[in-house]
Write a protein that binds this DNA or RNA. Structure first.
Length: 423
RNA sequence: GUGGAUAUGGCGAAGUGGUUAACGCUCCGGAUUGUGGCUCCGGCACUCGAGGGUUCGAUCCCCUCUAUCCACCCCA
């Protein structure tokens, strides 16, 4: 084969696309229930948007972005995540002039230059929501509750909500200072990346996976201990709301999100099903981001979940989605003359909203029946020279093999009645 | 970027330094005349990821490359 798909991308094929559509429509339905509206932004943006939005020091910006120059010399980047674009669109289109809070959802492909492995791809698909303009804890709780609702509706089990608060610009510097003081004597023993983090972003040392760093940072001052009054109250209120909604959670004071824009609430939903990947969903509050991207100071909360991680989870948990069958009726035709009449019936069935298929390869009746059987249709119309002359067609019930003669003039109506549809 | 594993017909999967490379599934066709799901029969035709090398001879041995999978890192 001359050309194959780019590394880390996937062809989503029939058989799977139905599952994607099912999940997507469930998500849309839930969003409608929660008052979130869809927003669609460009697949690529000015590179600067992500540098400022996601954070210059993050791995995503430093080594994972698909950045290119267009013929006009602009630096553009395939979006690595959805929040920055949504904020940009909110500010650029002056959506702050509308109803508040502004609640949006998006769903679509994201791009990161990663080494592919289980649950990780270079083009992957995220569903996410963003709520702008609500500073209070209700918004945080609602966002988590929406994600929870989705997993509940899908029937997934054993999911854990991990939650933490990373503070705000008022209390974070205090924590940073305390943390650096705590780690200073252990600095030489930390792993290479964490030594670098010490200056740039010491908070990230807390969720380093290296056992050595974990041990060294054990007992380190947590963000929770250093929260200012406002952040502490906010966090406690979020927890109280989750309790009220019956959502179980675990406080995880080592949970720190990898994107720079988070403030206060940070959360992940964890499941053990996708190889080394555990987070099926992640999000939190980002009260400084909108201002950072040129808007008025506006609070925001949201999350994103990876579509490529929900399907393996469904599989591991043995959950079958209820996908409606693809065909209701097959029209089998023999001979030249009946062909046109068969096509007329086929067309009218489809007009009536019935899923109908026919043979387009001129196969024998036997082969057509076999073909019909593969579609698992409820009825097959059989039309040959003899039937045509008699002005009737055979209607075969495929489940009990019973047959009846139906006048050609009535066949569509009869089928519609049987299928419980309106002619 | 680092490390490990694997690469055989549409899919799954045997196999050996040397005549026609198993098998299962799928697909297509057929089994007395115009009828499915079961059964039976036949077909899908030099091909063993790519390129070199060793050898009289390699799908099985060596080298290189590529791809895929998995893990680290990071994330959804």
């Amino acid at each position: 084969m001359l050309v194959t798909r780019p590394r880390g991308t996937n062809d989503i094929l029939p058989g799977d696309t139905e599952k994607w559509q099912y999940v997507e429509s469930l998500l849309r339905d839930i969003c409608t229930r929660f008052g979130y509206e869809e927003i669609r932004t460009p697949i690529f943006e000015e590179t600067d948007l992500f540098k400022r939005g996601v954070g210059d020091t993050t791995d995503i910006v430093q080594k994972e972005m698909y950045t290119f120059q267009d013929f006009g010399g602009r630096s553009l980047t395939l979006r690595p995540e959805g929040t920055a674009s949504t904020v940009r669109a909110y500010v650029e289109n002056k959506l702050y002039g509308g109803v508040q809070p502004a609640k949006y959802y998006y769903i679509g492909p994201m791009f990161r230059y990663e080494k592919p492995q289980a649950g990780r791809f270079r083009q992957f698909h995220q569903f996410g929501i963003e709520c702008f303009g609500a500073a209070g804890p209700t918004a945080d709780a609602e966002v988590i509750s929406l994600a929870w609702q989705f997993y509940r509706d899908l029937g997934l089990k054993g999911l854990e909500v991990h939650i933490n608060s990373v503070g705000c610009p008022k209390c974070r510097p205090k924590h940073r200072k305390k943390l650096q003081e705590f780690l200073a004597p252990k600095l030489p023993e930390l792993c290479g990346t964490c030594q670098g983090r010490y200056e740039k972003n010491p908070m990230r040392i807390l969720d380093c996976k290296s056992p050595i760093c974990q041990e060294l940072s054990a007992g380190a001052p947590t963000t929770l201990e250093c929260l200012c009054d406002e952040c502490r109250e906010h966090f406690q209120e979020v927890l109280r709301l989750l309790d009220a909604a019956g959502i179980q959670y675990q406080i995880d004071n080592r949970l720190v999100r990898g994107l720079d824009y988070y403030t206060k609430t940070a959360f992940e939903i964890i499941v053990d099903a996708i190889g080394a990947q555990s987070a099926i969903c992640g999000g939190g509050r980002y009260d400084g981001l909108i201002e950072e991207l040129g808007g008025q100071p506006t609070p925001g909360v949201g999350f994103a979940l990876g579509m490529e991680r929900v399907f393996p989870t469904l599989k591991v948990q043995g959950i079958e989605l209820e996908i409606p069958k693809a065909m209701d009726v097959f029209v089998a035709v023999m001979g030249q003359k009946p062909q046109a009449e068969g096509f007329r019936i086929l067309t009218e069935l489809r007009h009536a909203g019935i899923k109908a298929e026919t043979d387009s390869l001129g196969r024998s009746l036997k082969a057509q029946m076999k073909y019909a059987n593969r579609f698992n249709v409820a009825y097959t119309v059989i039309l040959g020279e003899a039937e045509l002359e008699a002005g009737r067609a055979v209607l075969r019930n495929m489940s009990d093999s019973s047959q009846e003669d139906v006048p050609l003039a009535d066949i569509v109506k009869v089928i519609c009645e049987k299928m419980g549809q309106e002619a």
